[in-house]
Amino acid sequence: MGNVSVKGVSRRFIKEGGTPTVALDNVDLEVKDAEFVCFLGPSGCGKTTLLRIISGLDIPDDGDIFLNNEKITGPGPKRGMVFQEYSLFPWKSVIENVIFGPLMGGAKKKDALKEAEKYLELVGLEQFKDSFPHELSGGMKQRVAIARALANEPEVLLMDEPFGALDAQTRNVLQGELLQIWQKKHLTVLFVTHSVDEAVFLADRIVMMTSRPGKIKTIIDVDLPRPRGRTSQEVNALRDQVLNILSEEKDK
């Protein structure tokens, strides 16, 4: 189960001698198990801050986060995080990167290796298990990062612009592969992006956020069947709707 509840969450940052910057202001959100939710909004609206709070890497000044009615107070294996930067250990091979989390969680190395190979096969990198990060392309590195997150058997996968640094072709391929993994694993996915096209292609719901201070402006249900054409009439209409909402916030 991967039900996430965000209740009255606010986050403020204070520089020494300065006034507080309100990143998030009283955010409420309910995410259902196995739902794919994308967060979209102007730069600096608190999308990544919210994701980090849900991961347990940051703490709110007000409010609480719950996973399956259990309050989140710090990082945990039930929430896997994939960052925009590849964040792999450069001195470890691909498979050593993937087994790192399970080993830290107390798994036996033989069992961890067996599971790691399964996840590397899932992301199409089983033939590169002994390679090192510097030998991989950007897209391959991000596949390793996804496999590493999945190796801990999380209930929620948190993704902070994971494909933002990739070229358009690779990005489109990985979006399709991510949907296949999501459907196979029945994960809850919370995905931060700046790309309207990406959000429309991936999401069950798009959470539109306001300019700072970050609040939820509206939530758009994406009631389109998968696989989705990227240029269909329905997709274009939804893209225009999202772009108009973003323009309203950028003009403020």
Rank of each mutant, 00 (worst) to 15 (best):
F39E: 10
V156Y: 03
E115W: 05
D58R: 12
W182H: 05
V192G: 00
G56L: 11
F100N: 04
G214K: 06
R79F: 01
N97F: 09
G138N: 04
I72P: 04
L120M: 03
E234R: 05
D64A: 13
L88K: 00
D167Q: 15
V222A: 14
P20V: 12
V200T: 02
K92Y: 14
H186Q: 07
N3E: 05
A203T: 00
R148I: 11
F36I: 02
Q241I: 08
E135G: 02
L57H: 02
A147L: 07
F83E: 10
S87G: 07
G164A: 01
D204A: 10
D204E: 12
K7H: 15
G18K: 07
C45L: 00
P154L: 07
D167F: 04
I216L: 09
S131G: 15
P60S: 13
R52N: 03
V222H: 10
P102L: 08
Q169A: 04
G76N: 10
T188L: 04
S43N: 03
Y119R: 02
D28Y: 14
F13Y: 10
D58S: 11
V31K: 08
W91K: 04
G214H: 00
L179K: 09
V235T: 12
K185F: 03
K78G: 10
P154E: 10
P102Q: 02
G63C: 08
N3P: 14
E153D: 15
L179T: 13
K78R: 14
L136K: 08
D62I: 11
A34D: 02
V82F: 00
T73R: 13
R239Q: 09
A149R: 02
Q169Y: 10
G76Q: 09
G138Y: 08
G80R: 00
C45P: 03
E115Q: 12
F66A: 01
P162K: 00
R212Y: 15
K129V: 15
F132N: 13
R228H: 03
D25Y: 08
D221M: 12
Q183P: 07
G63I: 12
V82S: 01
N172R: 07
